[in-house]
Design a protein around this nucleic acid. Sequence first.
DNA 1: AAGCGGATCGTCT
DNA 2: GACGATCCGCTTG
Length: 240
Amino acid sequence: MPEVATLSSLKRLVQLPRSFYYDPPDQVARGLLGKLLVRPEAGEEARGRANAGGNHWALAGRIVEAEAYFGITDPAAHASAGKTERNFVLFGPPGHAYVYFIYGMYFCVNVSCQEEGIAGCVLLRALEPVVGLDIMGRLRTSRKGVLSERVAARPASGPGCLCQALGITRAAFNNVDFTSAHSPLQIWDDGFRPGEIVVTPRIGVHKDADRPARFLIGENPYVSVRPRRPRKTMPCPEAR
DNA sequence: AAGCGGATCGTCT
DNA sequence: GACGATCCGCTTG
């Protein structure tokens, strides 16, 4: 099912123009479902472990899950406290990559949207591999050289997994322009249109935890499968 | 199926 | 000095 194409075999590809990214985050998140996140000639820039596939390869995956973050008015958003050294990309022009480091170990990538000065964004949470499934597996291989069948089959299902599978780091990708023809990270439309779109609360979010802002393609096996957020522990009134 | 703890560190209080 | 827009492996039911 995955690995249906090489990059050059894909037809009718159109890189999303800047104008696509001016809409509000929830609208952009829906619009991104079904689009292709592409690293053209990824091997050119890859180093070390990331270069395991050789010198000339491309990676592409279909976006099947994304979350909307609503800028300074959204308590769950990184932009809620205003512009900082970390999140400045969100306040710039739309269609750029905001990459941040999380839990001391992982990266996550967002697509900035809305006009300059307005800090809306969309967190990319899961891809269906389309080009380079084998390379994605190598990039997901642990330091100990372990690559489970489960991970190899769904290497980009989760925001941290997605960045690892595509070799996305903050140093190399923060603030890159998705709309540039020469960008190392691009978003293309190949004509695919998702069927049913499902909306749920965002994953791992505690502030404004019930807001429906996570969008995914229904029935798609590559969406991240995560446990429901832990139930609040209720204090026992008898205990003192 | 769900819950936990460990790994690991930049960012902001 | 505490806390994540996470992931994985192990334990428990």
